[in-house]
Design a protein around this nucleic acid. Structure first.
Lengths: 338, 338
DNA sequence: GCCTGGCACTCTGTCCGTCCGAGTGCCAGC
DNA sequence: GCTGGCACTCGGACGGACAGAGTGCCAGGC
């Protein structure tokens, strides 16, 4: 186990390195932090920390920089979450309050997060699987062509075109619409399959094929839309990434374009509480020099989607975590109100 | 007026510079192109071209690089559009054919363009103003709450929540829905205001307020959605931008996040035919070192939106223009089929 | 036993002078 | 009007010297 002072030294190293972006040496450390010991002592501590793998030297006779493991310890044990100040909170709320619809909420959230953290922000659209049905609408566009429109409690709308196996009258359509809604309106998406299972039985034989087609399209929509959408922003902040530009930034930009990768990234994060993935803890190779801070958000107590930021491992963790948490909380409130 | 040979020299300079990314000198030029004259002669020509402002020297005793004006001349007079090869065309078509809905078409187009041109691709969603109404749906969510859903012929769906001034019965709603659709279905969006103008007159006095509210929301939707959406991709290609990274790339990334800027950029481009904006021809300062190649695309003969790429002024114009044109053409076909 | 000051060592980044090559502009001659 | 030749300029690469920062280790003190 590391002594209390060694932990303090690690904390000081992380803080200084995050601030200056340069390897930090023993002398500078004692000057900037009241450790109450001499540089020589700190050197011994640093040697120990290096042995344990928490810090490393870029090259002999340079200062130390934290390793992923060092950041991990820092985040877990040494740093809290820095709460937002009151003015910041007000600014967040004001900014989000202006949103007019779901797209706008998400867009504003991305902007806000990127601005607050000065990093790349990622916001997942509220997921279908966890939300509830507000309404299902069926529109007859042609005798054997129906459009299915699905409206969720978060204001999201999905539509699908359906080619029916047989012509389907307006009356039958209205009937189906009514029955469908009476069963699923207000219910969770995950419950829908069970709830509509026996619906075709109530219809005339010649209509059953169409009803079944409509239902299976509805169920498909639920599944397909689990490939959820997301929005990213603040990519310009990548330019503050580091010195050795093109090589660092390129894989990150590539990863950000792969929604699949990002969704997996957010998905891996725990459902409740904040998750911080540091450097190599990220499964995706291109993000090995980045950290991802993410958290679920939702309108009720439950998370319906996630949001977070992607930044260099050398980031201000307490501040970033504070901003992410605060934004998630306010977005949740906004969603609950609408 | 420049002599034929001087134009050839300019063309050679542009081609070489685009290929090597390095200032090109007189000797190298005569070696790589059959100009039939000696380096000394070429030097004279280059001096003349520099006087006219078509090329410039980064510093004394270096080779020349084209100026924006030089690229302009190159694009206008010296270079054609390089057509895609047959296999390329097939690949484009195959790739786009797999799309399942409008979002997917746009997403695939962005990907494709970015890949073909190795630059940043921008694709505008088909515009509402130029498309036609497929269907307008009204859903009663609560006694005095209605959801308006607008479906376009390009498959796009927009929804708005409406708080009615007075409760509005199901029967009135169905009535309004029917009348509204009979008037606007299949019509162009620009014609809608005129077509619905006198609609409230057919309703009971107590319903007229609500009808008017619904109509004004519909019209608002048309206008608001003129702030059209777009999708970008291939930002990772920015890493191939140049040597002096952070400074060049940052403003570009910032511009790309400002949809307003991009939309204006595309909007400024001419309605028909391909537009190439080179360097300082772009009004937005951050894009002064980039060129934008854009073209309209649409399902019929008419353009419903635009797409294009953003890249360094030092780009392969003929190839880029060929790719942009080809993609626009095939996207148009896809939209026409669906 | 732990902390401290001192010392020798190592490595990087920088500065400076030199050198080389590429490219230019100009001029006289064909 | 083209060409070869020539002197000139300038940037980039190379290499040595130097300063600064940081380290590891050791002997001594609390």
């Amino acid at each position: 186990m590391l002594s209390e002072r060694r932990l303090q030294v690690l904390r000081a190293i992380v803080q200084d390195y995050v601030g200056t972006e340069e390897p930090v040496g023993s002398k500078a450390l004692t000057e900037r932090h009241n450790l109450g010991v001499s540089p020589a002592t700190v050197r011994n501590d640093m040697a120990a920390l290096e042995d344990e793998g928490f810090i490393a030297q870029p090259h002999t006779s340079a200062g130390r920089i934290p390793t992923d493991k060092g950041y991990r310890l820092f985040v877990d044990k040494l740093a809290g979450v820095k709460p937002m100040t009151a003015p910041e909170r007000r600014a967040i709320q004001n900014f989000l309050d202006g949103a007019v619809d779901l797209d706008d909420v998400v867009a504003r959230t991305v902007r806000l997060l990127a601005q607050l953290t000065r990093q790349v922000a990622v916001v997942q659209y509220p997921s279908l699987t966890r939300s509830t049905v507000r309404h299902v609408e069926l529109l007859s566009l042609a005798p054997a062509r129906v459009m299915l429109v699905l409206i969720t409690d978060t204001g999201r709308v999905e539509q699908r075109m359906i080619d029916c196996p047989a012509p389907f009258g307006e009356a039958s359509l209205a009937d189906l619409r009514a029955r469908l809604n009476s069963r699923v309106a207000g219910r969770r998406f995950t419950d829908v399959p069970r709830l509509v299972e026996d619906l075709p039985e109530g219809f005339d034989v010649e209509d059953r094929g169409t009803v079944a087609t409509v239902l299976s399209t509805l169920l498909e929509t639920l599944v397909e839309e689990n490939e959820e959408r997301l929005m990213i922003g603040g990519t310009a902040n990548l330019t503050r990434f580091g010195h050795d530009f093109p090589l660092t930034i390129r894989p990150v930009l590539e990863a950000l374009e792969e929604q699949v990768v990002l969704l997996k990234l957010l998905g891996e994060a725990g459902d409740s509480g904040m998750t911080v993935r540091i450097g190599h803890e990220n499964a995706y190779e291109g993000l090995n020099s980045t950290s991802v801070v993410s958290v679920g958000y939702g309108s009720g107590g439950e998370a319906v989607a996630k949001l977070g930021v992607v930044g260099p491992t050398r980031m201000d963790y307490p501040g970033t975590m504070g901003a992410v948490r605060a934004v998630a909380r306010y977005v949740g409130q906004i969603l609950a109100e609408s």
